Simulated assay, not measured.
Amino acid sequence: MATAGAVLLAGTGVYLHTTLHGKLRIWQRELDRAGLSGDERLLDLGCGRGAVLIEAARRLPRGQAVGVDLWSGEDQSGNRPEATLANAAAAGVADRVEVRTADMTELPFADDSFDVVTSALAIHNIPTSASRYRAVDEAMRVLRPGGQLIIADFWPMARKYAAHIGQGTLRGLGPGYWYSGPWLGVTLLHTVKKG
């Protein structure tokens, strides 16, 4: 009983660290690794209240960060476009952030519209595997040749997305992006769209 309690307490601590600090630090690192020049057009799928979207916008002084979401409060509390725009304003990047209501499986953008497409723990919320694959296909469709796809999701999902598109590298993001323990760890799928 004492062991189970200790494991539960430790898992709660890991979850809180990831939610409050870890995932943001990891996205800062991964966006830095992407080597953005500052004038890109970036799309964030399932942007929620804008954590990744705003971090991306900070790196795009001459670019644009577009976030799409269905704004479900079920997946994230307080999830609405006004909250995301308020967060962007508070971060001083509102001039380069746009949010739209859109379904990841039917993106309202032309082919080859973005230099980078990101998604943080959003695609797995789509209820069917066929629809999740459709979202990944849509991300690839709107990405220009030579553009980067950067998806962070639970490891079984990230592996399936990579297998579906037949390309990309997978990398575990470590304890900073665990939800209670390694069994709920997040993996990064990174790929560059072939021309």
Rank of each mutant, 00 (worst) to 15 (best):
V136P: 02
A135G: 03
A57P: 09
I123S: 03
L31V: 06
S180E: 06
L8Q: 13
E106S: 15
R29P: 04
A94G: 04
L184C: 12
A120I: 00
T118E: 08
G38V: 07
R171Q: 14
G166C: 05
A57N: 07
W178C: 10
R141F: 07
G63C: 02
V99K: 12
V66K: 00
A162M: 11
R171S: 13
R144H: 05
R171E: 15
L85Y: 00
A51L: 03
R96S: 09
F154P: 01
L184W: 13
R62F: 10
G5N: 12
M1I: 04
V97H: 10
L24D: 08
R29Q: 15
D69G: 08
W183Q: 14
V52Y: 03
R58D: 02
L16M: 07
T101I: 01
D44F: 01
M1N: 05
G166Y: 07
R25E: 15
S72H: 07
R62Y: 11
E98G: 07
P61D: 09
V68Q: 01
A90M: 12
S129M: 12
L173N: 12
M140E: 14
P182M: 01
D137E: 15
L9W: 06
D115E: 07
R80I: 02
A4I: 07
I150L: 15
Y133M: 13
G22L: 03
A2W: 02
D75C: 11
Q28E: 13
F154R: 13
I126N: 08
A91M: 09
F114I: 08
H124Y: 00
L149N: 04
A163E: 13
R33Y: 08
R159Q: 15
W178P: 09
G78L: 14
R171M: 14
A4G: 11
W27F: 14
G35C: 04
M104K: 07
E82F: 08
F109I: 07
A34C: 03
L36H: 01
G195Q: 09
A88G: 13
P61M: 02
G168V: 12
A88S: 11
A2C: 00
G50L: 00
A89Y: 08
V68L: 08
G78K: 06
G11L: 00
E74L: 10
G63Q: 06
F109M: 06
G73Y: 04
D32F: 00
V7R: 09
P182D: 11
V97G: 11
R62V: 02
G92W: 04
A83Q: 15
R29V: 04
E82L: 01
L9A: 14
I26Y: 01
K194F: 05
L20N: 02
D115V: 05
V68E: 04
L149V: 04
M1R: 10
A57S: 02
E74K: 10
L24C: 03
T84H: 02
T169I: 09
A65N: 04
R80T: 06
A6P: 00
H164C: 11
A139H: 08
L8R: 10
M104A: 15
